[in-house]
């Protein structure tokens, strides 16, 4: 197993965990941050797969802006899922 595969695997597993956390956790703020982590890892994976254009976009929109917008939205409602 070379380094490339190893890093990819670790990232993918981390991403899966973050995704499950985002779906399951009751604290919506944490869920949003977990979503951000998913986006971040995706953008890293894009970079590894030699797609810098997509990586930049994913990082700025997925991990940056949409996370911010989600946090704003949570701020105006309730933080805890019922």
């Amino acid at each position: 197993m070379d380094l490339f595969t190893l890093v990819s695997l670790i990232l993918i597993i981390a991403m899966l965990i973050a995704a499950v956390v985002a779906a399951e956790i009751k604290d919506l703020l944490s869920a949003a941050i977990a979503m951000g982590i998913v986006s971040l890892i995706v953008s890293i994976l894009f970079y590894i797969l030699q797609a810098p254009d997509v990586a930049i976009t994913e990082a700025s929109i997925g991990a940056g802006l949409s996370l911010a917008i989600m946090i704003f939205a949570i701020k105006h409602t309730e933080r805890w899922e019922k």
Binding site: P52, D53, A55, I56, T57, A59, S60, I61, G64, L65
Partner: peptide
């Protein structure tokens, strides 16, 4: 690399 979308973001 990059372009309109990431730039705008």
């Amino acid at each position: 690399p990059g372009g309109g979308f990431p730039g705008g973001a």
